[in-house]
Nucleic acid binder design. Structure first.
Lengths: 336, 336
DNA sequence: CTCCTTTCCGGTAACGTTATCGGTAACGTT
DNA sequence: AACGTTACCGATAACGTTACCGGAAAGGAG
């Protein structure tokens, strides 16, 4: 099946290809009459321009790619959507790309966006590891959201993030303040310098302030999925039944932990308090309603786009922005 | 900032552009030595080909687009991911595109995929309305998943779906069988011929079989979000407190309804049973665990890709496939 | 009437890649 | 020695679009 080109349209409308192109791009220098004629022919022929050809010719089309690390992560999905809202009407269109959290798709996705000649890149995901070092040699304005690149080999890229360390510290302090002492932490790999590692440091800060320390056995590593968190919590709480609070480095994990606790016959929050991070919508409707350290999704999105635009337009250097998070206490943490 | 082209690489490696292109596409007719030389230069220069130029030249690249209607829909997200898994290693790459459920983005997304010269399209979403009629004139192999196009103006497109009418009927029968009589239904617009309308018919079927009828006031229209479902349920159950069961046409809605019931002091399932549709992962970990009519995500994905492939390769006509769903009874529905 | 704008339109050369065709060298085969 | 075969490689023409330049026609100012 042959698809029409502007040449076909031009012929059918009795004008030149240039004119068709002009109409296609709503340029002013086409008379009312020709414009309507061309449009009519285009509509009749169900004409759709060739994005590849256009992209080849116009290098300045200002497309920015958003790579989301973690396919089923409601927090990142919500954030990604918020980013799309930031796309000003006449401005750069966004292309979304989801990659797996574990697999080595980052490099692949990066090459893809680069090969499409994107003029900017936003990365969403709390984890950065060696796989992300692939940005070397890709000279593109880049912003990492929800994780800082400060002090990493990737500092060439800007970043917009919370103060993860302070956030985690504040969270633990809230639990300590409510009389919890046997606190478990459900997080990820503590290696590296990403959000998860910083939060682990923040946890220690809080304990140190009180001259205490997180017991080693109470740090539980888990992937950030419901099923993994559930299983991890099940086996942990069987092992350490005296634990009376859990701080989870993601709301999804927190929800899995709550379910496991209930299955073990423990009540939340009467027996065990559970505190998450992210502020996903589900946390407002879960049983019990989830207490969490809410990240300001809108602000992160706007700030990321702003920083990227700045880099793209004025070639500015990388900046590292910190936005404030807020502790939201709901039902899953007991009263003081 | 200038980006290298194969011409630059060719010059630097002392070969012709043709040879570079050959290396880029792993063609056999390049000597070991030249191949390595070119590859080395490409690596050193951090060369990335121009996808636009390639796409322009090669019309046969077999790219298929997946349009998902509903941005924050965990069921559709899971289904979309499953689709990507179906992408055979050497076969067509998939491009994902999320559109809003309400807004008129469908036409826009369709044009986008068409302009990129996709060779096939999969649409994910239970709702089809006038906005989708835009497929007229777009002569592309298409498959609608989770909704049937049989008997609609869009029957040119294939579809893979459950038997929505039977599903809903089975769901209501399960509730009736457990002694529920005052059943509320939380669904969407009953107009049209999409999944939601079919499910509404299925509900009536079940009542008719018993010589009963769904009371008009007990059909609650709501958008399929947690917040809307919550609000709708809150006001409905205040109005009809004698209702003892709710059938929700999406798990997300069911979760919102449960939260509303608890806030009204009703216990689930002791006072009110709640039954959903979809089979999202959250339903396995919620409190109480959600009973649901589970759709076979893997099967839908595989079947959709298979039908599309068939249409693309052999130019086959549209087919309408029905896959079986299964009732999963968990905690949110009381025992018989 | 001339000259100068303004408005509108068309011809042509790119953009970066791949397909096609053709050519050269090296090696067997008779 | 002549020929066919194989393995490599290069020049060139597309692909569909837009940028650039130039030109015709119409109107306004002097």
């Amino acid at each position: 099946m042959k698809i029409d080109t502007i040449r076909d349209i031009a012929e059918r409308a009795g004008v030149s290809v240039t004119t068709v192109s002009r109409v296609l791009n709503n340029r002013p220098d086409v008379s009312r009459a020709t414009q309507e004629k061309v449009r009519r022919v285009m509509k009749e022929s169900h004409f759709v321009g060739n994005a590849n050809a256009r992209g080849l010719k116009r290098a300045d089309q200002e497309m920015v790619a958003v790579i989301v690390r973690g396919r089923q992560n409601p927090f990142l999905s919500a954030l990604a959507e918020e980013m799309l809202q930031c796309a000003a009407p006449g401005k750069a269109p966004f292309a979304l790309e989801y990659i797996d959290e574990q697999a080595d798709e980052f490099h692949h996705a990066l090459m893809l966006t680069h090969s499409r000649r994107a003029s900017g890149l936003i990365f969403l995901g709390s984890r950065i590891d060696d796989r992300c070092h692939a940005i070397d040699g890709v000279n593109l304005p880049m912003v990492f959201a929800t994780v800082t690149t400060q002090g990493t080999p990737m500092a060439r890229a800007s970043s917009v993030s919370m103060d993860d360390r302070a956030m985690a510290c504040q969270a633990i302090e809230a639990l300590l303040q409510r009389g919890h002492e046997k606190i478990a932490v459900f997080g990820g790999d503590r290696q590296g310098t990403d959000s998860l590692a910083l939060r682990a440091l923040g946890v220690e800060d809080a304990f140190h302030h009180r001259g205490m320390q997180l017991e080693e056995g109470r740090y539980v590593e888990t992937r950030f999925t419901l099923s993994d968190a559930y299983e991890a919590a099940l086996s942990f709480f069987r092992r350490c039944p005296d634990t009376d609070a859990a701080f989870c480095m993601s709301d999804t994990v927190a929800l899995g932990v709550i379910r496991a606790l209930v299955d073990l016959g423990r009540r939340v929050p009467q027996d065990v308090s559970v505190l998450g991070i992210d502020g996903i919508e589900m946390g407002r409707y879960s049983l019990p309603r989830l207490s969490t350290v809410a990240q300001p999704i809108g602000k992160i999105a706007r700030e990321s786009v702003a920083v990227l635009t700045e880099m793209m337009e004025s070639g500015a250097h990388a900046r590292h922005v910190t936005v404030p998070a807020s502790l939201v206490l709901r039902e899953s943490v007991r009263e003081a």
